[in-house]
């Protein structure tokens, strides 16, 4: 048995996901950090490359995606879901509906969280993989640190992956020294509905 366990690293080659179900929450330290862009990219990657069934939950009052994906669909847990390029989109979803869907389905779930207030934050907390996007740009940096100081969202910081859209190595190191958390480069995805192979590695890294 011990000998067998020694070979556990076999399952870790390339870090490709093996589970059948996973919930991924993506949030921004504020608005306009490209949370929807990354969320859609991840959902499309999981479906079109990893060939998993995916439900995209847009956790916000008013949908930003309806015009893009809202053509045909079906109902999932009583909520209207729009099928686009293989991904089921549940738009303008309430936190309660999101919780119900997460509990009831076997599909992979990507939660696009518009804000981390108590209501939506509770859904974000339920996700196995939590992604936080911010920027180390001089005029935006303070929001990242403010978010990390905020106590209203009781999250174990070690379970969150932090991403920076500014991609400044010096500032990323500064962030790590101050918070003891790793700040990663946020991938640049040209078109989330037409992914390219060069983008796969970073997207895969986000969800593993």
């Amino acid at each position: 048995m011990k000998r067998f366990l020694r070979f556990k690293h076999w399952n870790k080659n390339n870090n490709i996901i093996r589970n059948n179900k996973k919930t991924i929450g993506i949030a921004g330290v504020g608005s306009n950090y490209g949370v929807t862009h990354i969320s859609v990219s991840l959902a499309n990657y999981i479906h079109s490359v990893l060939k998993k069934q995916v439900i995209y939950i847009e956790l916000r009052d008013k949908s930003d995606l309806l015009n893009v994906v809202g053509t045909k669909g079906d109902a999932i847990c009583g909520k209207e879901a729009f099928l686009y390029k293989g991904v089921n989109y549940i738009l303008a979803c309430s936190s309660q509906s999101a919780m119900d869907i997460m509990a009831a389905t076997d599909a992979w779930i990507v939660v696009d969280t518009s804000s981390l207030d108590a209501d939506y934050g509770a859904v974000y907390l339920q996700c196995e993989t939590k992604i936080m996007i911010g920027s180390m740009q001089p005029w935006k940096r303070k929001y990242y640190y403010e978010r990390l100081r905020t106590k209203d969202i009781r999250i174990n910081m070690n379970n969150i992956k932090f991403y920076d859209t500014y991609k400044n190595k010096r500032k990323m190191n500064e962030f790590r020294n101050l918070t003891k958390q790793q700040l990663r480069e946020c991938p640049h995805i040209e078109n989330p509905f037409s992914l390219q192979e060069k983008e796969f590695e970073q997207l895969n890294e986000m969800i593993t």
Partner: peptide, 9 residues
């Protein structure tokens, strides 16, 4: 050959 879905170039 990898069979990509519709959301990949």
């Amino acid at each position: 050959i990898l069979n990509y879905g519709k959301a990949v170039k």
